[in-house]
Write a protein that binds this DNA or RNA. Structure first.
Length: 149
DNA sequence: GCCAACGTTGGC
DNA sequence: GCCAACGTTGGC
C-alpha cells in the first residue's frame, strides 16, 4: 500500500483539528502534480500530516485515506477562497479526498530533524524551494520517519 | 512553443 | 516581513 505526505497550514487545518473531527475532506489542492498524486490514493493508504508555514514546520501525525478522489466542491463554491472561476459542475479539474485521523505525534517531528536524517535525503520535502503539497513517500522513508518519532 | 512577468509557497 | 524558488499565465 502506498504512503504519502500532505501539507497543511495548521492555522487553516491542523492534526488537532483532524483528531477532534475524526474525518475530514482534504480539499483546496490547486497544483496539477499534487492533484495527480491525490488521484492515485487508495482507500486505506496512510499519509504523514505535515504542518507548513508555521512556527515549527514538520510532521505532526498520521492520517489515512477514507475516500478516494472525487471532484473538489470548493472549486465551485463562490464563497470559498479555493474557488476556481474556470471550474464548472460538468468540468471540474480539481480533486479532493476524504481522510481519517490515525495518530498525533507527541511532538512535531521538525523539518530540521528530517533534513538531518540521511535516509530521507531523497525526499522532495527536505529540498530547498520545494512547494509540492502532496507527495509519495517510499516504504523505507516511511519506516525511517516512524523510527524518529 | 518560448520565455518574461506575475502570483504563491513556505522557510527563516 | 523578507525573499528565493517555483508553477502558471499570456504575449508574441
Amino acid at each position: 500500500m502506498p504512503y504519502w505526505l500532505m501539507k497543511s497550514e495548521p492555522d487553516e487545518f491542523s492534526i488537532q483539528n483532524l483528531e477532534r473531527l475524526g474525518t475530514s475532506r482534504w480539499d483546496g489542492v490547486r497544483n496539477y502534480q499534487a492533484r495527480n498524486f491525490l488521484r492515485q490514493m487508495l482507500e486505506g493508504d496512510r499519509f504523514f500530516f505535515y504542518h507548513s508555514s508555521c512556527a515549527t514546520p514538520g510532521i505532526a501525525g498520521i492520517g489515512s485515506i477514507q475516500r478516494t478522489a472525487y471532484p473538489d466542491p470548493t472549486a465551485l463554491d463562490p464563497d470559498s477562497p479555493y474557488r476556481d472561476a474556470r471550474a464548472t459542475e460538468a468540468k471540474n479539474p480539481w480533486s479532493a479526498v476524504d481522510v481519517a485521523f490515525v495518530e498525533r505525534f507527541d511532538s512535531t517531528l521538525t523539518l530540521a530533524r528530517l533534513k538531518a536524517e540521511p535516509a530521507l535525503a531523497q525526499m522532495p520535502l527536505v529540498h530547498k524551494g520545494n512547494r509540492l503539497s502532496v507527495m509519495p513517500v517510499s516504504e523505507s522513508e516511511w519506516r525511517a520517519i516512524l523510527a524518529m518519532r
